[in-house]
Nucleic acid binder design. Sequence first.
DNA 1: TTGTAAGCGTTATCAC
DNA 2: GTGATAACGCTTACAA
Lengths: 340, 340
Amino acid sequence: MAKARTTIHDIAKELHITAATVSRALNGNQAISARTRQAVADAAVRLQYKPNQIAASLRTGKTFTVGVLVPAADRSFFGSIIRGIEEVLAAAHYSVIVAQTHEGQQAEERAVETLLRLQVDGILASVAKGSAEFHYFEKVRQAGVPLLFFDNVWRSMPVSSVVIDDYLGAYRATEHLIEQGCRRIVHLWGHRTSYLYQERLRGYKAALADAGIRVDDTLVYECKSDPAAGQRITADILAQHPDVDGIFSSSDFAAVGVLQSLQAAGIDVPGQIAIIGFANEPFTQFVTPALSTVDQHTHTMGQIAAELFLEEIQANKPFTPHVRILEPDLVLRGSSLRKA
Amino acid sequence: MAKARTTIHDIAKELHITAATVSRALNGNQAISARTRQAVADAAVRLQYKPNQIAASLRTGKTFTVGVLVPAADRSFFGSIIRGIEEVLAAAHYSVIVAQTHEGQQAEERAVETLLRLQVDGILASVAKGSAEFHYFEKVRQAGVPLLFFDNVWRSMPVSSVVIDDYLGAYRATEHLIEQGCRRIVHLWGHRTSYLYQERLRGYKAALADAGIRVDDTLVYECKSDPAAGQRITADILAQHPDVDGIFSSSDFAAVGVLQSLQAAGIDVPGQIAIIGFANEPFTQFVTPALSTVDQHTHTMGQIAAELFLEEIQANKPFTPHVRILEPDLVLRGSSLRKA
DNA sequence: TTGTAAGCGTTATCAC
DNA sequence: GTGATAACGCTTACAA
């Protein structure tokens, strides 16, 4: 049976001092004499004292925990962000509570409530795509809990956020294809309603326009973010636009499906059709030819999100939202690099 | 400014009853009259009452949080396990605190101490490869906190665990290559000191022996788990064993490196050399030819780990460790399937 | 430099 | 059925 844990009172009794002094000694309070501090430290080891953070939290109102909301922890994109967040927060003695929303509003709302009940010191969230309202996110702020978005954000809420510049990423990807000689460039578009994909579409069109290439809306295909969808859509593209010479996919997953279908159809990539995806999923470097893509600096995104949170709780000046927009980088590989 | 939160005392005052009654009503205590219960529920909504789990935890000793220790959250293997764990625990109203060890003992020890300070109700861990001792894991049990291992375990500790049958996975993978006609099969071995890799080596040898094929130790190559290592070792293999016709890699990452090098050398896969990896990493399905591999049921592993934990805390009978060994499944693809 | 005392928001054990 | 009270383990004015 687990015998009663040692508390600061046990240490106090042992040393014939009070619990208050023990508490101060353990917390490095400068008012405490070196002798006492040492005695307390020794006794703590001897009695195997383990601080009870819950008790301290109840008193101070700080738990040193932060909630992180992601759609799914097994998606490489979010795993990488979680990694970045945990690294930075652990160094600052914060722990990370991970909750998954599965892109659904109900799970998201439940998770937010759970986190608030646990009295987390902050919530970092990638908003679920299935969320249409956000009264529960308002509650977070009403509760005085710092809130911060990354990746997919509610732009109408005045909270800090970390995102990548989807417009710029798409622009650069398209520009690259143009530089490789492509003129009839298909865009595989994502969720019509998503700001993120709207921005990618905007970037695609801007790059074409800036290069003096006519924007042809029939070259824009709505396509889910998975290989099977990419495979299915390839036939349509080839049938409707036999003159296509480049494809910019807003998803690596769709891109790899297209790549496979093109190869099955005997079409040379990148010779006849050059391809570039988006996200720099780990698998992109392993396909043949390796898939060009746009890196979103997910690890950095997590780190910055954590840093913004730390700044926010440390600042005593009134809070003003910071929006950090990361510059995506092109990762150019065989699928889009034609010989010079 | 965050005004003072409503507590059960506020509700009590409002209804001219005591906090004890409010607490009982909120917790569904049957002794409370339906009228009171309803009044409390109404007042809770009206006053926007939000329970303070920290206060309850201090009193009850239960936090409804569980610590999960993994080497790195961005490795697909662990992301998938975390997903499984979180899904099961969230349904049981537990939250998951994720900490990363980066395969190092120091970080692991720090993480364990942090989790104990946070009074987690349990710890689920994949032991860091860099850990040589485990006095801090002993402390977890001394503290009366349920401990459970998955993936990489301390076999000398009497705690429950969930692992896959590495021996069986390796046996089946090797057997499959033999069935495809391979006779000179190289094994790419992992960490020499790791039980897990020792088991895979054992499975490889057993399958050969059972098929009446001579076990040749020079066919066993120690190789790190990354594509570059696989690429480097390919030249050695081809030089030293030009008659090799199959490769069983204990790592998908090494396997894909080998695959690339073989193709660069103009060797037909699977015709001349068939390849099978281990882990069913997401990228294996996208390489060309798609890489055969051994699936470890990571999502299930996470779910089972969580279920074992829940059983352990619910059981009132004395604790006996359960060891769950999952059967790995072959995932056969182009890299090892020769035409019939 | 240290002690005293109050309190964080709950829940549990008595009573009545 | 409900109330009164203590307690969980810690921190922090305020005193001394």
